[in-house]
Amino acid sequence: MWTWQHVLTTVFGGLIFPLMIGLVWGKLAEDFKSFGGVLAGFFIVGTIWLLNHGIGLMYEPQMAGDLPGPWSDMALVAFWGLFVADLFEGKKIDWESLLGGVLGGVLGGILLFAMV
């Protein structure tokens, strides 16, 4: 069951991840090129994954029971945070890459569905 604690931790988990990516990832990639991405992968995504899905700031009650799912990954907040940050700035939506991203998700989902 959802409680106010779960609401608070889920919102905070959704806040911290895109904020860290937006503030740090670009600078790491700027300073260290591709190796900056390696550092960012470990120290931003890895560490915040420990918070969000390790300790469990993001509450996912649908994962209990015999038929767990669907899983709403913290990737959603990474996409949405960076996306709306640009929308606030007044940038337009690039439907071409949005379509590419959605189709990628559908193909990945089909592969995961078909695997086991």
Binding site: G37, A75, A78, D94, G105
Partner: peptide
């Protein structure tokens, strides 16, 4: 880094995270 996700400079950033989230939502773990 190489740019397979076709983002253009002046448009809102589409992160690969969109694909990642949708893949798990559709196909599970």
């Amino acid at each position: 880094y190489v740019g397979a996700m076709p983002n253009k400079g002046n448009y809102a950033w589409i992160d690969m995270a969109l694909s990642i989230w949708l893949a798990a939502l559709l196909g599970g773990l």
